[in-house]
Amino acid sequence: MVSLKAVLDVISLWALPFIILSIIVFALIKKVPVYETFVEGAKDGIDVTLKIVPYLTAIIVAVAMFRASGALDMLTGFCSGFLQRINVPSDILPLAIVRSLSGSAALGVFSEIANNNPVDSYTTKLAAIMLGSSETTFYVLAVYFGSVGIKKYRYAVLTGLIADCAGIIGAIVIANLFFA
């Protein structure tokens, strides 16, 4: 496993240098004026960033309010009985909910789980798998659709949430197979 990780670490390290070098060298061969072209393309970057702000503010504020209100703790309270019956520690629930909403919050919840449970416990490993296999769905929605001014998301939210649920259920099943 360590060797697989070592190989992937090297690939991760070289991926960006390789892409950027290839693009510039290829352009030089094709006699593209690289500097002028770079500046021409780059100036759109600020515009795009500004376009994202309203969408980001909308979702980040709503999520921050929701967490501050204590609603999350109440939800955890309601569901813990049911979760224990299917052999899922109740500590996991806040993580399962928060991971779709806020990346930094999910990291915080995970650190808490890792510190409050024995590091090699089933709970910590399940949490690790759940967090490692997730992406902050609502952040991705806000940034990607916000950048082009899409306001009607159609089925994108539903698709993202279904994939999140699949990830949660998958994490529980796999963690049971590997670590229970």
Binding site: I23, I24, A27, F38, E40, I46, T49
Partner: peptide, 18 residues
């Protein structure tokens, strides 16, 4: 995000033209 965004859009313009 702004900095990487600006940089990447510049690089991609080069990739596009070449």
């Amino acid at each position: 995000l702004c900095g990487v965004m600006v940089f990447w859009l510049g690089i991609m313009k080069i990739a596009e033209k070449s």
